[in-house]
Write a protein that binds this DNA or RNA. Structure first.
Lengths: 221, 221
DNA sequence: CAAGGTCATTATCGAACGATAATACTGTTA
DNA sequence: TAACAGTATTATCGTTCGATAATGACCTTG
C-alpha cells in the first residue's frame, strides 16, 4: 500500500527513476546506491533497510533476497565506492615522482564528489568490530601502504613536509576529506560551498603546497 | 532482573564504580559519560538509551527522568565535552603570536585524550538536521571564527602555511584529530598506538611544523 | 509517627527494527 | 499450453527501540 508497485506498473515514474528496467543488475545497483547514502548519513546501525529500499524504489524484503542480509549490502556498498575511487587512482604511474601529488589531488577531488566513502570509513574506523576488521584486511591495509610508499618516495626526493610516515595516512586524509565529509557543517559555518569546483581546486592546490612544499610549481603556467 | 538494584543494594560494587554515591549530580555525570561513549561509537541513532543506562549502572527510564529525552542527554554530553575542551583552550592568551601554535597543540592533545568529541562532531557534521543546527549555532560558529582569527594573525606574522582561511578549520582539525577519532583503525593499520604519549607529542610537533612552517623552533632546546 | 517529595524500580506501551514465510506475478522453455 | 524458475509483493515473526505509567523505597519535615 505504501509503495505502489514500484517496478511493475509503469504508472509512477517520477518517484522511481529508471524503474522501468527490470534487470537484476539495475535493481541491485539502485539498492547499493541508496545504501551508500543511508549508511553515509546515519551510520550502519542508524540506517534502516526500509529506508534503503524506499530510496531505491523497492520493497524491504528485496534487500534480503538480493543481498541476504544488511551487512552484505553494506559490503557491496563499500566495494562500489572503493572501485569508483580505483577508477581515479589506477590511472597515473604509481611509483613516479609525482605519485604523491596526484594521490593528494585524487583524494581531494574524489572526496568532494563522493563524500560518502569517507563518511562511512570515518564512522567505521571509530569502533572495533567485524566490519572494521573486514575493511582493514581486504582494502585499507593495501591502500595505506601504497600511500606510505608514495610518501617515502617524496621524502627521498626532498619535496615532502616533515610528517612521520605513520601519520601521513590520517593527516593527509583528514586535511583533504573532512571538509567534504562534513560539508553540511561547512555550509552552515562559512558563506561558501566547499564543493564548488573553484573551491575544490583551491583546496587541492593548498594540500599539495602544504604536504609537498618542495615541489616545483607545476600547474601554474 | 538484569540489573540487580544498581544504586540501592551495596552488593555488586565492581560493575558499578562509585555507585554508592546517591547524589543526583553524580548519577547524571555517569549517564553523561556513558552517553558520550555510546554516541561516539554508534552515532546518535545507533546508540540506545538502554545501553547508555547500563553503562552508567542505571535503569533506562532514569534517562527520561533526569534528561527528559534522548536528545537532551545528547546535548548534555556535548556540553560536557566542549567544557572539557575549554578548560584547555582558555588558559593561554588568545590573540598572542603563539595563539595558533597553542591551539594546534591543544587540538592534538585533547583529540588524543577525548576522541569522543571529534567522533560525535564528525558524525553530526555529515547530515543536516536540528542537532547540527544546534551545534553550529551555539558552539561551533564561535569556535571556528576564533580559529580563523588566530590563523589570520599567523598569516600576518608570516609564519603560516598557504592555506585559505575557509579551509583552515577542517584541514587543521582533520589533520590533527582524525588519527584519534579513528584510533581503532589506526591500531589495525600500523604497529604503533597513536595515543602513545610519544606519538602524540610527535604528531603535535609535526602539525605545528606543517601549518606554521615559519615559526621559530621553540620546544627544541 | 504521619505527610509529602524525590527518585528508583518494574511493567508496559506503540512503533520500528531485521528477517523470513507465504503468496502472486512474469517470462522462458518444453 | 503446462511447467518451471526467478522475482515481486504481502503478511508477519520475534526483538528492540524511546517513552510513559504505576508502584515502591527512602528521606526529610511537621
Amino acid at each position: 500500500m505504501t509503495l505502489s508497485t514500484p517496478a511493475t506498473a509503469p504508472t509512477d515514474e517520477r518517484a522511481l527513476p529508471a524503474s522501468r528496467d527490470h534487470s537484476r543488475a539495475q535493481l541491485r545497483a539502485r539498492l547499493v546506491q541508496s545504501a551508500i547514502t543511508q549508511f553515509a548519513t546515519h551510520g550502519f546501525e542508524g540506517a534502516s533497510t526500509r529506508a534503503i529500499a524506499e530510496g531505491a524504489g523497492a520493497h524491504q524484503p528485496q534487500i534480503n533476497y538480493h543481498f541476504d542480509n544488511k551487512e552484505n549490502l553494506w559490503r557491496a556498498a563499500l566495494e562500489q565506492l572503493l572501485s569508483e575511487l580505483d577508477d581515479l587512482l589506477s590511472e597515473p604511474s604509481q611509483a613516479s615522482d609525482v605519485a604523491m601529488e596526484t594521490t593528494i589531488r585524487v583524494l581531494v577531488t574524489f572526496g568532494s564528489r563522493r563524500p560518502e566513502l569517507n563518511q562511512i570509513l570515518i564512522h567505521e574506523g571509530a569502533n572495533p568490530g567485524p566490519r572494521l576488521a573486514w575493511l582493514v584486511d581486504t582494502h585499507l591495509r593495501t591502500r595505506s601502504q601504497q600511500l606510505r610508499s608514495a610518501w617515502e618516495h617524496a621524502v627521498a626526493a626532498g619535496i615532502a613536509a616533515d610528517v612521520p610516515s605513520d601519520l601521513v595516512y590520517h593527516t593527509v586524509l583528514g586535511a583533504s576529506a573532512l571538509v567534504y565529509a562534513n560539508a553540511p557543517e561547512a555550509r552552515l559555518l562559512f558563506a561558501t560551498d566547499p564543493t564548488d569546483p573553484d573551491q575544490v581546486q583551491a583546496h587541492a592546490d593548498a594540500m599539495v603546497r602544504l604536504f609537498l612544499p618542495g615541489i616545483t610549481q607545476r600547474n601554474q603556467q
